[in-house]
Design a protein around this nucleic acid. Sequence first.
DNA 1: CACCTCGTTCAAAGCGCTTTGGACATTATT
DNA 2: AATAATGTCCAAAGCGCTTTGAACGAGGTG
Lengths: 366, 366
Amino acid sequence: MARETITLRRLAEVLGLSQTTVSRALNGFPEVNEATRARVIEAAQRLNYRPSASAASLATGKARTIGHVVTLGDHMMINPHFTDFVAGAGEVYARFGYEMLLRITGSEGEQDVYRDLISRRRVDGVVVHGPKTRDPRIPFLRKLGIPFVVHGRCEEDPASYSWIDVNNRRAFMRACNFLIDLGHRRIGLINGIETMNFADRRRQGYEAALAARGIDLDTSIMFSADMIEPHGYRAAAQMLSSRKPPTAVLVSSILPAIGVMRALAERELRPATDLSIIVFDDCLSFLQPGNEAVSGAIPFFTAMRSSMRLAGRRVAELLIEQIEGQHSAPKHELWEAELVIGHTTGPCAPAESQVPVRVKPFRRYS
Amino acid sequence: MARETITLRRLAEVLGLSQTTVSRALNGFPEVNEATRARVIEAAQRLNYRPSASAASLATGKARTIGHVVTLGDHMMINPHFTDFVAGAGEVYARFGYEMLLRITGSEGEQDVYRDLISRRRVDGVVVHGPKTRDPRIPFLRKLGIPFVVHGRCEEDPASYSWIDVNNRRAFMRACNFLIDLGHRRIGLINGIETMNFADRRRQGYEAALAARGIDLDTSIMFSADMIEPHGYRAAAQMLSSRKPPTAVLVSSILPAIGVMRALAERELRPATDLSIIVFDDCLSFLQPGNEAVSGAIPFFTAMRSSMRLAGRRVAELLIEQIEGQHSAPKHELWEAELVIGHTTGPCAPAESQVPVRVKPFRRYS
DNA sequence: CACCTCGTTCAAAGCGCTTTGGACATTATT
DNA sequence: AATAATGTCCAAAGCGCTTTGAACGAGGTG
């Protein structure tokens, strides 16, 4: 098993053919006799021949590898949603014969990481994770002239590059409207860090919905921080202990939402009856397995859903298209999140609501 | 910026030197005049020269890349603990100039993935994630004669390869003893999938602790499944609805523990008072940020802790040592988890306990 | 002065692929 | 029958590095 690795040259010798022919036979070129091709393939399999990746990429100039640069946040952690995304992207790479290169980096020097990856010709393209509202990486990558696709997008010139994003603004607007329809007037926001474009847009949606119904903003019930459990806990604890706690809250991820639950439990309060909670959950597979939705069971959290895994798949597909295809125009996809009703939302308790409650039957928003 | 990439040859031409000298100057060989070396380095920086990774690895035979093969579990998801591990490993790779290659695969054909990675010389070594109790990957990799380090270990011949593992047996034994000391006699187990070695050992620890105190096993309060929220929820729900619910429970990960909390809340029961919970949390960064422990705040869950990130770091270090160093003997590290007391454990309610309760003061186990 | 040793540099030979530009039979076309 | 058009195959030139073996002065020894 540990016998010397077999090279193209050896294989050609064994077969009594030239390297050219063997190479072409294996790579499916038409100008080789089908009989010889069969012989070659058989021998390659028998001798367990695998072309050297570095030799091939040196010769072709293609690395057949895609780079993912993930930045550690304030808490030096990788966004857990990332695993789902990567799983989706991985499927696609496997299908097309690409490798996935992962670089973990602190927030400084991200650009150097990209530059390094690219100028050493380690990757044919990169995917950009977690774009900020104004993100220097994008003009930088454009200038480098390398294929890339953004998961999310930036404020500036989004038409000039490919991206896939969820309509975060709309999702939060809708969720907020849903709460208002339930009679809530005092609605808190537990958002992610608002330099991130997605969080910024979520806030916009929240603000727009309130404004449209003539509800004033109250910054004392608006929070913004890393999307982790303790943040949700602290924010909820602070709101619930205030003289005028909200009756509902919009939470940016299921992680802080779990913290909200903890704060409620501590006070012997209950979701839906004491505090309505809507969470943007991105279908975190390890908390909310997709099959639950399929099987028809009612999920616990009322949530805006959008599959991270699907996003990973689609981003990978776009990127490969861009790498392999002729220079096509940038593509964009804006996905709508689905509002799924769970057990954490309910009508505003009459005592607290300033207007008559219009209870709507639970239903599944498109 | 998008000007043609500069090669070693060009750089040598510009400098009026041979490729040999330039290469050696950049790679720190001693036989080059320090004055020339300085000139070379300056020029390289000015012209933004980066050696081609594939050319270098073709010439040296080293890929300077390490492969991680992660297998999607039953729920087609990546274990979320993985992100922390990878973050740790990534730090080390960055420090030593290695890349990280990630391959996502279904459970079939894992071996082919390794074989492919290795025989195409894409990686210099691999790390094995989530070893099963008897895992065919290990003899397979040994036969291939490639450097690898296992995160966890297998039952068979663990002395023959390098690994880093947590003493899962001991951790669960200790946690179980702690509960027994609190007066609990009926202790449930919500374990991971027991074909996984770590889950198997955890169960052993649990069983050993009970046996040592003369408590009979009751398989109706022992559960084993993927470590996700719904599993914890279902297991807890089932136990709490039974005629004779446990007064304490050992949970294999913080994810199912969240499900346990949900089951409790649903029944208006409370942790510690109605059900003691100890969780093995692996310091999931997005739920239990390390700084909480450092800052002295009492964490919510009573937990057995062991840092995934540290494990990732150490595994990477061992692997690089193995790749670069002379053939040294396999190394093993067995880490002890730390038992940290939080808010989810308390004495067994007298009515339920069969023996007088011996309350111990809360303390931090080493 | 011849000889040796250093310190420094270089030409050239790979590493294992892909790809260009023929070569050489066959077969089809005139 | 001569020519053109295939259908198959090959030798050789790269791709951009690393590394071997040798060259060449300068300084140190006998």
